[in-house]
Design a protein around this nucleic acid. Structure first.
Lengths: 365, 365
DNA sequence: CAATTTTCATTGTCTATACAATTGTACGAT
DNA sequence: ATCGTACAATTGTATAGACAATGAAAATTG
């Protein structure tokens, strides 16, 4: 039954809601005809005027178009006013890590295409991402750049689905979600980490500690690159010098790991930090502990963040083209909007090695 | 006669048009009550449902608000294109300085009020600000947080006027424009700089170099605070140890200044850097030159930026509540939109002194 | 005088009915 | 084939009447 005559909610409102849901769920598709007034009168047993009121409201809301003699039809364009030249950028926190660089890359490319950029911070939380997704859809944005949150993949898929249902092009940036046919732009984390590890090995390091978070596929790939490089050089993988965190970035955790790894100085000669922020934390702990980088321990990072203080430390790292990642993401979206692209775009940008002075050669023992 | 029953134009449409004209011509004024349905039934001789249809349309068009038991009223706001729940944030560059913190403050407060945040980078250029202003207005945003560009005041006023003409509330953040009756949120730069200088003087420093840009009133005020503190302690102002830049932040300029100031070590015992980024540059130059901070020269900054590397340097500085500045800006805008505020809001937030270890006491010579 | 209840004007919801206007389709005439 | 005309389906306009819900104001109560 569509309408409950005993419900306190008005009957016209009940059919109205029912119809709207049918349309949103695609039961009645755009351009398609919905039942006529008389048909609905028969189905529901309500008066025609009641049906008309529901129809009038939905017409006003842009869901329906009525044509004399022909019937009532679902509107083609997703009933809210035509999509705007706005791109939503959903990131963990505009204040941290590479996020400002990414946002700027998106914004610059957006401005070139006369798009505005709506910024959304999720703090890596699903609820915040969900909140922003609804808000973005309300504003009938044209497309979305999404950095998945630290929530499980299914949760991130819910967000993605929200946009897809409304035919809003979406591209994932940096972090990926496995087994999903979706546009994305990321960097070659596996190859990058492989190269960095190879570099350390070439410099004579055989006992290389590593610490990162396994929550994000980016960092997991770095771990795999590290493992592959060790294996290719016949160096056994030693879990005792690997510190894996399964949550988002956590300063306390890494401070603790840094202390432990640096204290085991005799056991390891180099540390592979999952990304530069971790590397910087290790720097600060090393300084406190009186351990010299690189003289006592070599260190490499990943990302190549701009340090606030130029030349204060000189971290050997892998430069990720974050700004370009933002640009590329938007280019894909624009071509989607223009309908120029139909195949899935999955772009892996090349990172490049930045050799500074946080690594020294070690005599092979 | 209001309705002509022989006219081919529908009768509901006739009263609808009549009512709309009455409202537009000011016969029925905003907030005022229009005749009730029954009254119009008597006047026109039409059925109540017909009157209702006219009322329903006008309500939908935003001319009327209906209140049970009370009657039907003319709406206050002009039924033009309703503004969106979007705030525009116009900043120099999301990647640099305190901007991410400001943007986050705005965004968080915006999200609380179910507003979305459009981010615009100007690179301190008028043309880019102008471009973004037009784009924002096209998207019929609800309000704007504007950090004026490095362009002359008249240019920034042009931007401001664009928004004012369209009745879009605007608030200036951090940087101000003189002689303008406008809402703003800034911090107590004069008092802050005065306090910092006093602190240096109390520590026994009498020859204090200073370098900053005179382009922004924020930094000019810091210079004035510095001058006042010197004057209050009867220390003469010496232009030879003052390096003023009249353009936006320029790394090369400050690197040069740092070299000069640090080379004149005998002449000065402390440096007041216009903001932390300059201070960090001075750190890096000092390091290269083998000059120790604070042992050879004391240094203070302004802003209290988070260094990428925790504890890498320990800069004594003035903490500006940037996040709060973003929040406050948005609070003002929301209250403007709600019509709760009519007087100009000019908020000066208190900064607080952060004593770290970049300053040492100096024996009074 | 304050708190509570009742009243009632007004809008909101709903039914039932009738005829008008619009326009695709079908049929027939040219 | 093309034109005109009639038909039918569907939405549009309009009337008349009933009861519900709301909430400010009036009346009543403690």
């Amino acid at each position: 039954m569509i309408v409950d005559r005993n419900s306190p909610v008005p009957q016209y409102f009940q059919i109205q809601t029912w119809l709207r849901e049918q349309i949103e769920q695609g039961v009645f598709r755009p351009e398609e005809k919905v039942p006529t007034e008389e048909e609905l009168v028969k189905i529901t047993g309500l008066a025609r005027a009641t049906i008309r009121q529901a129809f009038a409201n939905l017409t006003n809301m842009g869901y329906l178009v009525r044509k004399r003699r022909l019937g009532t039809f679902v509107t083609l364009h997703s009933h809210s006013s035509q999509t705007k030249n706005i791109v939503g950028v959903i990131v963990p926190d505009i204040r941290s890590g590479y996020t400002p660089e990414l946002a700027r890359g998106v914004e610059d490319e957006a401005a070139k295409n006369k798009f505005s950029t709506i910024l959304c911070n999720t703090d890596d939380l699903f609820v915040k991402a969900d909140f922003h997704a609804d808000r973005l859809l309300e504003n009938s944005i044209g497309c979305v750049v999404f950095v998945p949150t630290a929530a499980p993949d299914e949760k991130n898929r819910i967000i993605i689905e929200k946009f897809r249902k409304r035919d809003v092009p979406i591209v994932l940036a940096d972090r990926l979600i496995p087994n999903l046919d979706i546009d994305y732009v990321t960097t070659d984390n596996f190859e990058g980490a492989y190269g960095l590890t190879k570099y350390l090995i070439e410099k004579g390091h055989t006992r290389i500690g590593i610490t990162l978070s396994t929550l994000f596929n980016t960092e997991r790939l770095r771990l795999e690159g590290y493992q592959k490089a060790l294996a290719d050089s016949n160096i056994p993988y030693d879990p005792t010098i690997v510190a894996l965190n399964d949550g988002p970035f956590n300063e306390k955790y890494y401070l603790q790991v840094a202390r432990t790894l640096l204290a085991s100085e005799k056991k390891i000669s180099a540390i592979f930090a999952g990304h530069d922020r971790i590397a910087y934390l290790i720097y600060s702990v090393a300084k406190k502990m009186g351990i010299s980088i690189p003289n006592d321990i070599s260190l490499i990072g990943y990302d190549d963040l701009h340090p606030t203080i130029p030349n204060s430390v000189s971290l050997t790292t892998m430069h990720q083209p974050i700004y370009e990642m933002g640009q590329e993401s938007l280019k894909i979206l624009i071509s989607r909007i223009k309908g120029e692209t139909t195949t899935t775009q999955q772009i892996v940008l090349k990172s490049h090695f930045v050799e500074r002075t946080s690594v020294i050669s070690r005599k092979i023992t």
